[in-house]
Amino acid sequence: MKVTNCTWELANLGRRTVEILIEPTDAPDPTALAQATKGYEYIVVKVPAGRVDYNIMLAKEQYFLIETQISLTQNISNFDFDDRLVRCVSRNLELPILESDHDFYAALEHVTPGMFVADRIALDPHFSLEDSCRRYKNWFTSAHNDRSATVIGYKVNGTLVGMGMHRLVGDVLYGLLGGTFADTPMGLGLLTVCAGQLFVRANNLPVKTIETNISANNTQVAELYSYCHYTFRAYTQVYVKHVTI
């Protein structure tokens, strides 16, 4: 198993956090798990779908399933730019890179509690929508500051309706985060799904594949990705445990 001390989550969530990634050759070992997670207040364990042995062990150890992550991929040549819904949301659309501090922080102000409601933080009764919002804002800010990802705005008719970020590695565009603002009309959420493809085309980038992850808790977004012909490649079950120290 791979153990990551998520130091950044202390600022995001106020908890000492560890993430355990279960790898294919791992076997359930409650003692090793307890050792690896000792001293942490928020423990996240990611288990590939189908590992019922781990599901049983984690339930016994009082972990609970908070979400299933779905890994999605799409060969961009399969994306239908002429689809009628895609054409509808891309009408009068601009996808500016939010490069300057001024543009970035102006956009970030629109990220409010309620923009992200289906992630494992927003849905966890031990956390709140405010915690989820802070976590995403910090993630955006970190990426903006160290330029580890490209942050873009979704602008319709000159009005910013959402923002997202991606990273280009070789010919793969990794969609890291995206969403429309809480007060954006329902339906424009499709922008989150196709912003990558539209950005690639607008900027003539040498991208062959788009990859991203979503939560199965967000059934409406999953439906949108399905509509846009993404391939659902892998499923990861995410278990969590809160420990009072």
Partner: peptide, 17 residues
């Protein structure tokens, strides 16, 4: 939107088109 389950994000966009 409150009483029609099909009137979700996708439903709204289809309705607009």
């Amino acid at each position: 939107q409150n009483n029609c389950p099909q009137w979700d994000s996708m439903g709204q966009l289809n309705l607009v088109v």
